[in-house]
Amino acid sequence: MTALELRHLSVTLRGRAVLRDVSLRVAPGELVGLIGPNGAGKTTLMRAALGLVPFEGESSLAAMPPATRARTAAWLPQAREIAWPVTVERLVMLGRLPHLAAGQRPTAQDRAAVDAALAATGLAQFRHRTATRLSGGEQARALIARALAQEAPLILADEPTAGLDPAHQIATMQRFRALADAGRAALVSIHDLGLAVRHCTRLVMLDAGRLVADGAPGRVMTPERLAQVFHVRGYFADTAEGPVFQSLDLLEKVE
């Protein structure tokens, strides 16, 4: 059983190779953290996996018909777009679109999924508020709730914790981890290596469009790779509190 399988995925945008020959499998039960410096190809990897950009190679998701894909994978883009001043409840209900036939009214099951997603993101008391008038972090949580309400076996999220306060960063990662523990799967790009190490079951490291490491957090976060890929020195330890990572110093000037 795999939730997502990518084989030899390459993406070339405007003559530039953004992603080169990446192969990756995500199985149910995994929370895979996608890490790498800016421009490493994290977003492109996820968009290509969904078939949103032209690519070479194979993606199990992109091969599906759009309607099936929408019920198989939820996608949370990094751009937090809420175009109209709809209520939080209606925004989250948009996640149910793949489950509704054209013109069909939401069923009790759809409403239950929305309620659960609102509760999971701590937005239950905001449900009748106008989404566009919430703070940036609250909007981000409302959009996470939208993706959760889709109840897809796989969720792909592009920097879901950016702009959230520490409590909600942890809550978001714990929510994805709970989904994984319940037999679903998540692929999450993340810049906070401390959060990634602590909550992900597995890390995938990208650098300049190539997959450079794939495995348990402790095996991926070696001093050599941190130096080569991120140009930082860090502290990593398996403590009684679980794995801990803190980046410490720059090794050389970042261009």
Binding site: A70, A73, A74, P77, I82, A83, L94, L97, G103, R146
Partner: peptide, 23 residues
């Protein structure tokens, strides 16, 4: 009249709408 569903999904932007199965 057939556009309602697609326009609703576009509230989340073009990328998210595509991923929701909207062409």
């Amino acid at each position: 009249a057939t556009l309602g569903r697609g326009l609703d999904a576009l509230t989340l932007g073009e990328d998210a709408a595509s991923a929701l199965g909207v062409s």
